[in-house]
Each structure stands twice: as structure tokens, then as C-alpha cells.
Simulated scan of single mutants.
Amino acid sequence: MPDQAIVIGIGSYPTFGANGASPNSLPGAVQDAEDVAEWLHRNTPAAVTLITSTHCNGAPWTVTNLLAARPVTSDVDTAFKPYVTSTAPKVGDRLYVYTAGHGLAPDPRSRCLIMADAMGINWVPNLEIPAWFDWFANQSHFDELILWMDCCGTQALEYARTKPAGLANTASRPPPPAKVFMAFASGFGRSSYEGPIGPGGMMRGLFTDRLLKGLNGAAADASGEVRSKSLANFLRNGGLNGAGGEAQFAAVPQEDDMLFAIRAHPIYRIRAMRPDGALVPDGTVLELTNPFVPLLKTAQADQGWVSFAVGVGLYKLSGGGVDRLIEIGATTPVDIE
């Protein structure tokens, strides 16, 4: 059975300003969702439902006035409903869900996506998607559940939670539950940010940018696989500079093992420098090893550099008088001095 995916990007919030009548929009959210949908189309067998501020699967929304906005809660519920109500023993192997938009965090393990028709702090319709995943984990519809949420994790206890209630066990699953991978843009009580990182400095979600880089190979382990552990470490590794220089750290509350992609590693150039600061002569053979996994790569120095295709990890570069440790993380540049 094909995998399924629901991708949501809400960028237009015409009445979510402080007074309930002014906008509080996110310039990058729609394109972030489009980019994730494109990645899913190219790299997975998933049937993708794409819901954004501008359209649902390519069909423009119908709105009554300039202050009306979509999607609203019922629009997103409609995407989930076929899976929730299905009595078939299985709907697909995997369910992917991605969201970009404003959000809130009722507790550390959860996030709520705020809908486009929110009005200030007085009317904040939202969808607590991790609660839906908890329900799906005990059903047989999917064997693996993957959730990526590029939303704030700020606490707002006055906001009503929207956990699914009164759902029958339409296809109850015997233990163990389905595997789950959840990753959020920021930790509990923290904001997430957009930045000028798209083509031409266009705004994009910092978390989504890192997520796609990881899926495209930067999070591959020593064998070239992007698995739960390597992707989780890549997302957590290092801070992303947000507003006012505040660091944004991703949160990964559940990372059951599953394979996301098999990728060639990025190529890093490393300075072939001896402890006294001298560069090794061209043609000198250096070795790169990893103390935690079986790995031995060799390369010849060229104009003071050696190049290796490797993933995130801790490495030792040696040979020709060179003896240095190299740590490659989520934000490591391709040229390592």
C-alpha cells in the first residue's frame, strides 16, 4: 500500500495580530510546505495532500472577504478523516505529517498548529497533531508515523487544546504500537524563527531548512543512511540564530528507529595542517578515521587541503605529521580550517 502524507503550510494570518484585526503572517511557511511536499514526491512513494494558505492540492480556496482565511480546522480535519474512519486493517505503511505556521505547546511532548482564522488571543483554533499520532500508534492503519512541525513551542495555557476525543478504535492494534518519529522546531516554551536563507534571501523556516538538508544527506550516518538517530542528532546539533540572536534548538521527543533516505555524504575540505602551522606537501596521503565506527578513508593533500565525503560525526585526521580531531555537525561549513 502507498504511504500517505499530509503537508500543511499556513502563512497568512489576517487577524492574528495583537488586536484581533491586524495580520501576523509568516512569509516562508507556504514555500516551506511546498519544498517538503516536493521532497516527499521525489523521495518517497507517498500520496501527498498539500494544504496551504493559497490552495488545497492546487485548488484555490474560496473566501468571503479579505479578512477570511483558510485553512481552518475543518479543512485539516478533512485530510485526516479518511484515515481515522477507515475500518480497513491497514491504510499504508507510513504516514508523514509536516506543518509550518504559528504554534503553541500545551506540554513538552506536544505542539498545536494554529489555524488561519485565529483572532488575537481571544480566538485561537488549533490542532494538536501529536495527540492524533498517539491515537494512530494504537491502530493498525500505519506501521510508522512521522511528524515534523515547524511551529513555536511557546506556552499559552489559556489556549484550549484540541486533542481528538471520542474516537472509536476502528482498527485496534495489538502491542507493540506503531513506530513514531516526532521533531519540533524548538524546545518547550521557546519560539521558532524564519530567516533570509532562501534563493535571493527569501524567508524560510530555519528548522525546515535544516530538516531538508539532513534528509538530503547532511544527516547521513557512516553507511550513508539517514535514520531516526542520525536525523535526530543532526536536528538537535547546534543552535540556529533567531530573532535578536536567540538560539533555536530543535526538540525530538520520540525517535523510534526507521529509515528516511540513503544519500551520498557531503564533501568536506579539511586543512592538512601540522601542529606547528605548516601545511603538508601536495601528494601526502592522510587518513580519516572515526573512533566509534569502522571507518578508514584516505586522500592526498592538494594545495594544503584534503577532501572526504562524510556525514555528521567525530573524526581523526592523521598522517604526514598531522594529528587533529574534526567534529562535523549540522552547521559545519564545507571548508574546515
Results as ranks from 00 to 15, higher is better:
residue 305 W to F: 10
residue 105 A to L: 00
residue 297 K to V: 00
residue 294 P to K: 06
residue 295 L to I: 04
residue 126 N to I: 01
residue 35 D to F: 03
residue 185 A to I: 01
residue 138 N to G: 09
residue 290 N to L: 00
residue 15 T to L: 10
residue 186 S to H: 00
residue 318 S to W: 05
residue 72 V to I: 15
residue 268 Y to E: 05
residue 81 K to M: 12
residue 174 P to Q: 02
residue 208 T to K: 05
residue 153 G to H: 05
residue 232 A to H: 02
residue 308 F to S: 05
residue 157 L to N: 15
residue 3 D to P: 06
residue 93 D to F: 09
residue 257 D to F: 06
residue 60 P to T: 15
residue 182 M to P: 02
residue 36 V to K: 10
residue 88 A to W: 03
residue 206 L to E: 03
residue 225 E to C: 15
residue 197 I to V: 13
residue 204 R to T: 11
residue 97 V to A: 07
residue 132 W to Y: 15
residue 302 D to E: 07
residue 195 G to Q: 06
residue 337 E to F: 06
residue 87 T to L: 08
residue 35 D to P: 00
residue 250 A to L: 00
residue 3 D to R: 10
residue 42 R to Q: 15
residue 182 M to G: 05
residue 71 P to D: 11
residue 284 T to E: 09
residue 245 G to Q: 02
residue 156 A to I: 07
residue 17 G to N: 06
residue 207 F to P: 00
residue 63 V to L: 04
residue 183 A to K: 01
residue 145 L to S: 02
residue 333 P to C: 11
residue 311 G to T: 01
residue 117 D to F: 07
residue 64 T to E: 15
residue 145 L to W: 08
residue 66 L to C: 01
residue 58 G to Y: 12
residue 210 R to K: 14
residue 39 W to L: 13
residue 325 L to I: 02
residue 285 V to A: 12
residue 233 N to F: 08
residue 298 T to K: 14
residue 146 I to L: 10
residue 196 P to A: 12
residue 293 V to R: 03
residue 287 E to I: 02
residue 220 A to H: 15
residue 313 G to R: 03
residue 328 I to Q: 00
residue 106 P to I: 01
residue 218 A to F: 15
residue 1 M to E: 10
residue 77 D to R: 15
residue 16 F to P: 02
residue 201 G to S: 08
residue 120 G to P: 05
residue 290 N to F: 04
residue 241 N to I: 13
residue 245 G to K: 00
residue 240 L to H: 00
residue 74 S to N: 14
residue 93 D to E: 13
residue 320 G to E: 11
residue 43 N to C: 15
residue 93 D to A: 11
residue 111 R to E: 00
residue 113 L to T: 12
residue 220 A to V: 10
residue 298 T to S: 14
residue 64 T to V: 07
residue 20 G to H: 04
residue 327 E to F: 01
residue 77 D to C: 12
residue 84 V to M: 08
residue 59 A to H: 13
